[in-house]
């Protein structure tokens, strides 16, 4: 894994768009360099959405007692795989999700579910009081003949 860029933002929804635009742009540049077989728009949208979801969760679960909390977004790559980690110091959470029961008109709870569906792999680690949510996606489209 080669590190690409790390961005640390204050845990505030004001910076949500910065995080997701950044993800979209990193994904675009990466996909462009990695190969041209991928549907680049789709690849970028997956990153834009996933980071938007993860950052929103990080801000939502930040304790209000510590307004100076930060969220770190770290991009790295390996061959044709792009990885992004969202790191925060919030309380531990359970990254295993089920599809929300849509018939009950739920207003939330789609975030991690969307991430799981958009990305190839999602992993969660708790280390030294930080949450690390790592998502990867390969920039090659597996197209059946």
């Amino acid at each position: 894994m080669n590190p690409i860029i790390t961005l640390t933002l204050q845990a505030n929804l004001r910076y949500l768009r910065i995080a997701s635009i950044m993800a979209c742009n990193v994904a675009e540049i990466f996909a462009d360099l990695a190969c041209n077989a991928t549907d680049i728009a789709e690849f970028c949208h997956a990153y834009e959405l996933s980071v938007s979801e993860a950052f929103t969760n990080s801000v939502r679960y930040a304790e209000p007692s510590q307004p100076e909390k930060q969220v770190t977004i770290h991009f790295s790559s390996n061959n044709s795989t792009l990885a992004v980690s969202i790191i925060d110091t919030n309380p531990q959470f359970n990254p295993v999700t089920q599809a929300p029961d849509i018939s009950c008109y739920p207003e939330g709870g789609y975030g991690l579910f969307l991430i799981h569906r958009l990305m190839d792999t999602v992993s969660y680690t708790r280390k030294d009081n930080t949450n690390i949510l790592t998502m990867t996606k390969q920039a090659t489209m597996v197209h059946e003949a």
Binding site: S20, E48, L49, S52, E53, T56, Y105, P106, E107, G108, Y110, G111, L114
Partner: peptide
């Protein structure tokens, strides 16, 4: 230009109220 699950949640919330 962009909709995420929080935006979707808002639309679902409105739909529930209207219903």
């Amino acid at each position: 230009e962009f909709l995420d699950s929080s935006g979707l949640g808002a639309l679902v919330g409105i739909a529930r109220k209207k219903k």
